[in-house]
């Protein structure tokens, strides 16, 4: 364990984007949140806002 730590130090740092891609649980969160908001929640909001049928002159 201690040895491993040593080799990790002094190496170039891992790019932030790589850390992001490796973070499966952050991806899990975003992968659910984005479509739920953009598709489902927005869609439900539109359904709720549909106006009643107006009165038409016969």
């Amino acid at each position: 364990m201690a040895e491993e730590k040593k080799t990790e130090e002094g190496q170039e740092p891992v790019p932030a984007w790589q850390l992001f891609y490796d973070n499966i649980f952050l991806l899990l969160f975003l992968g659910i949140a984005i479509p739920t908001l953009v598709y489902t929640v927005w869609g439900l909001m539109e359904i709720v806002q549909i106006p009643e049928l107006p009165v038409f002159k016969p």
């Binding site: 991806l27 975003l30 992968g31 479509p35 598709y39 539109e46």
Partner: peptide, 30 residues
Amino acid sequence: FVLYILFINIASEHHLLVDPIFSTWHKVVN
């Protein structure tokens, strides 16, 4: 793959393109 995870699901909308209810913006964005 990350693009799939983030953006592919909203394509579900294409089943609703000629439905009543959803606005053009909802359809076009999704």
